[in-house]
Design a protein around this nucleic acid. Structure first.
Lengths: 142, 142
DNA sequence: TTACTAAAAGACCTTTTTATCTTTTAGTAA
DNA sequence: TTACTAAAAGATAAAAAGGTCTTTTAGTAA
């Protein structure tokens, strides 16, 4: 469904949130290892997330990635928009050429409820809600 | 949602069905032009579809692509399975590492109804049902 | 202020996807 | 049986996605 960048970002951010809850600021080496993603690629992606303001980081000894105190929860939608643009979430899921309400492809109406459900899911669920669900199920890894 | 190969195959096959209804066997040049897809790439894809038995073709003068008389309608699922494998339709839509019923990602349950709706859609809708919907709406192009 | 640590930046490489073009083969119609 | 037409086949290439590595910069702790 999503590309690798989105996947690694999602898993990475959830891991960061999880560690923050334990009072830790994980570094990139640890994060990549734990979410089983390529280290340098994940680094590149998380650095982009920092620039975008989705997460913060601290250099130097004791540094690492973290979410600012009091920062609002991040809906998955926000992340996905940054990594994939709105193509994935809006527009016709069947990509039958240009397809919108005015010039619908033959699946436009049939797909509408699905598109809506997806949009609801990604706007309701957040990095934090996913992290919480992990904690509840006490999984060690993503 | 789907990759280019699936998209071109889908549009190409629907176009073929549409023309067959009019008693015509369109050639690759015409098909590519009408569905606004790259000609040689579309050719390659449709040739693969022929090999897979999803559609038939005839060489030589008066040749082109066509669906065998009495051939069963082709569910979108069948096409998608050939172009993308089962990854797109089964498994967790969020691709949070390995995710199945036994080791679910934190979105597995939330995504389940969506996955089901998608599967129902692609097994219900067929190349032919899409073509028919075009005819009803009397669209010239896909 | 020094040594160390960890992110930031960016060059570079690999693989996959998407696309193009040429040649060959097969079939049809006249 | 010849001329023509259209798909089949496959080599090649451009673009995008995915991934690696090295160097630089900034910050921390001692």
């Amino acid at each position: 469904m999503f590309n690798k960048e989105t996947e690694y970002a999602l898993r990475g951010l959830v891991y960061i949130q999880l560690q923050n809850t334990n009072g830790r600021r994980p570094g990139i080496v640890e994060i990549a290892k734990e979410i089983e993603a390529p280290q340098f690629y994940t680094a590149k992606i998380l650095q982009r997330m920092v620039k975008l303001g989705l997460v913060s980081s601290l250099k130097g000894k004791g540094g690492g990635f973290y979410f600012e105190e009091g920062k609002k929860d991040i809906p998955l939608e926000e992340l996905i928009m940054q990594t994939e643009g709105n193509k994935t979430l809006t527009g016709c899921g069947f990509g039958l050429k240009q397809c919108d309400c005015e010039n619908p492809c033959p699946l436009h109406e049939q797909y509408a409820p699905i598109r809506e459900a997806i949009n609801k899911l990604v706007s309701t669920e957040t990095i934090q809600s996913l992290a919480k669900r992990y904690t509840l199920k006490s999984k060690t890894l993503l």
